[in-house]
Design a protein around this nucleic acid. Structure first.
Lengths: 339, 339
DNA sequence: TTGAAAGCGCTAACAG
DNA sequence: CTGTTAGCGCTTTCAA
């Protein structure tokens, strides 16, 4: 049990002045005499006075809290995004309350409710992979509660959002594979209804087209984003009689699951099968062979999301701005055949 | 800008009763007539009333916030611990404010200050690797602000803490290496002043002794916990004229850096050099070869830390309880020589 | 059975 | 230049 914090009242008592005098002195109000101001500030300093945010919040009706909902907190991808959000929030004197939906729509809905109960001033959200109904967000919009999406968004809703250019990325990967001699390029995607899955599929198809390759639907697999499901998807690809000579996965988990499975079945990477994924630097270089990948600008994504948030909190009106971040392809050994 | 939340006053006005009646009805006070209670509850439900935590906090002098300081937020290790803390906090109706010291003592000190300014009710902390002065924590103790350490602790301070049994773990690793034919077992440790480094060193030395191996100080290297430094440390080991035949690293980063470096220099794992580390499941199986490792019970560590926190908040007195969690060795390919 | 009033810490309009 | 007062939303004692 911490001791009670010092309050304006305490300071006022001690100096035999009124609370408002202390309050004013501390914010350099011109009405207060210089000597008084000095005296008060000295005592405040000595007693280690800091204003009680609860009282301020009650007065101003603001908590300076932002609710953040991510599908999974235990991945570098999201924790890096969270760091970005946190940085910008801090600059604005806000702090963030992080919750995880665990990829469940039900938990996402509960998170929204709980965060609102905690009086967060708004939400920054990455949708769970299950989320296909948006009434819990529509309610927010109706009540003019600031909302920003990142990465996985609902495109029907007029909500500011930060996106990575996955379409461009998958196109680049496809072309890169083709240039390295691959003809049967497989893609393990995420749940079909997610915008990221859709965009990246478009990029994949465009890439194929530009390379003059035909689209074979056997080579495009949707899977939920678990390691088990990704392994199954990989096995399915490897059972095809006309096997792929390249595979790319839509995120870390899938890329690694594919890598494990491909190796397990005795195929050489990249000579038998080339591999690429969406991952961060660290993970890509830790595996063997180092994984060609497009690295999400995660930290920056978090920053941008938070910036959008503060824009919509300042302009007291709904904005509907989309920020698109570029993604770069980093070529490593897993996709460059030695032949 | 969100609409104003509904308040007791709003409900009271609408029903033409007093605020206190509404307040009482909502908490089933026996004084209020059943019909009144019912009516009030119905309206509260309809209007979606939730109590304003700011007002409650101001009244009760509690924020229901716990400050958490970790050295680095972007690792599975810490994010998993945080999840554990979060789970228990939630069960108690608390939420957590996470900050990262980025392994800097200065930032750690600032974090403590900022969190106190935000009126967190207490702190759960893992020390930065730099921290060798504890006045910022002593101040907390003097003011009876609940404090719990996990993993990296200050042993001089009487603070409840959760620890993993690193001493036992390193002993097991050492013995395991020996059983697999290794005679020159190297250990890349963390900064010397950290308790985890010290404990694990003791385990290492005990392990050597029990195996009848002599301690060679060339084989014990301290490094700061960056990937670059870990690579340098590995290079140093590999330059010894009497090279190690086994290396283990004190955490994920170091284990992987060592693996990369060992491979790079053309040594076969495990046949030339066996490897082991402290990592989590996922990372261990993603690398090649799969890494023998002791896996920290991270989530559990977070849970225990939070439990300790609530113990010390409930008993209104300083407690000094240490919780020691067991660590298991999981043997994988990186340490089992084939010969 | 219900209401009025005080107080948690703070600010700001209004008095003096 | 400084003090008084009301009020943010809530609980709780005291009064009716």
């Amino acid at each position: 049990m911490g001791k009670r914090h010092i309050s304006l009242k305490d300071l006022a008592h001690e100096l035999g002045v009124s609370i408002s005098t202390v309050s004013r002195a501390l914010k350099n109000h011109p009405d207060i005499s210089p000597e008084m101001t000095k005296k008060i500030k000295a005592l405040a300093e000595e007693r280690n006075y800091t204003p009680n945010p609860l009282a301020m919040g009650l007065l101003r009706q603001q908590t300076k809290m932002i609710g953040v909902i991510v599908p999974d907190i235990n991945t570098h991808f999201y924790s890096s995004i969270i760091s970005g959000i946190e940085k910008v929030a801090k600059e604005h004197g806000y702090f963030i309350v992080i919750t995880s939906s665990n990829e469940s729509m039900q938990k996402e809905i509960e998170s929204v409710e709980n965060l609102l109960k905690s009086r967060v001033e708004g939400l920054i959200v990455c949708l769970s992979q299950e989320t296909n109904d948006f009434t819990h967000f529509e309610k927010l919009i109706r009540n003019e509660i600031p909302l920003v999406f990142f990465d996985r968004v609902c495109e029907e809703l007029e909500v500011p959002a930060v996106l990575a250019n996955g379409q461009d990325a998958t196109k680049k990967i496809t072309q890169h594979f083709f240039k390295n001699g691959c003809k049967r390029i497989a893609y393990i995607s995420g749940p079909e209804h997610l915008n990221i899955s859709q965009n990246r599929k478009v990029g994949y198809l465009n890439g194929l087209k530009e390379c003059g390759l035909e689209y074979d639907q056997d080579l495009l697999i949707h899977c939920n984003l678990s390691i088990e499901d990704a392994k199954l998807a990989t096995q399915k690809l490897l059972r095809l009689k006309n096997k792929p000579d390249a595979i790319f996965g839509v995120n870390d988990t899938i890329a690694f699951a594919a890598m494990i499975e491909v190796k397990k079945q005795g195929y050489k990477i990249p000579d038998d099968i080339s591999l690429a994924g969406f991952t961060d630097e660290f993970h890509s270089i830790v595996v063997d062979p180092p994984l060609t990948s497009v690295s999400h600008p995660t930290f920056q994504m978090g920053e941008e999301a938070a910036k959008l948030f503060f824009e919509s909190i300042e302009k007291e009106t709904n904005i509907n701005k989309k920020v698109m971040l570029p993604i770069d392809l980093v070529v490593r050994e897993s996709s460059v055949k030695k032949q």
